[in-house]
Amino acid sequence: MSKINELILVLRVAYARAYVRIKGVNRDLTHFFIDVFLPLLGISAIILAYKSMGAPENLLGFAAIGGAMIAFWYNVLWSMGSQLYWDKEQGNLQLYIISPAPLIGILLGMAIGGAFNMSLRAITILIATSLLFNIKFNLNAILPAFLIFILTLFALYSLGMIFASTFLRFGRSISKINELLGEPILFFSGVYFPLKLFPIVIQIVVSIIPLALGIEGMREILILNKTLFEIIWILILLIALGIIFFVIAVKMLEYLEKLGKNQGTLTLKWD
């Protein structure tokens, strides 16, 4: 297969896998309502807590942005990280393996579909929070904020692809790993509070978490009215992380497929 044909196949597979995600999840609109409603309960509690302590308006906006982004992290863990494992249990993975479709196309499609679904929800949550608690965002800076948002998703879902390849080997303990990673990463991403509260060493360490960077970047732009130029380091880091994570994901997937074929773990359920 020539490189061009291979690329076309990757894109076709990615489109089809994204279609499954988007069509499947949005067929029933109650899912959408619930996905927005549930996080809204939690974010409202946080904003009310801030209000009860007489916190400055900025912190309310910070919590709204961070709260809306939480869904992406859970999506990366549960719908990216664990997905190939579920696919294996279901029998889909062996069909992927024995077809000419490259696994990277499947992962790419999962990422695009998941990111699209979650974006619709996150934006709705943000608008709802803004209306409910009268939180003002710098709407003139929507485009730079969107750029940060897209780069965050690129880096975050590339990380998700790494998880998908890695977690496949953990088998049944996968839900435990997801649970262990869930809240700690939300905490270190400062979803409800500014990252600057952390000591500087921790701030540096957490800048390898795309979620932390993305939330920080969007807050700086939408709440603190900074320009893209002023937070260029976030932009550069997000691009770098995205590329690095993506390359690692591709390499890991290749390695995993080889290892799986050697050891027979990829389709083990079959035995």
């Binding site: 916190a55 400062g190 409800y192 509070f193 509260l197």
Partner: peptide, 10 residues
């Protein structure tokens, strides 16, 4: 920790 950092932020 997520919640008490709300307090710390204020």
């Amino acid at each position: 920790m997520l919640m008490i950092f709300i307090y710390i932020a204020v």
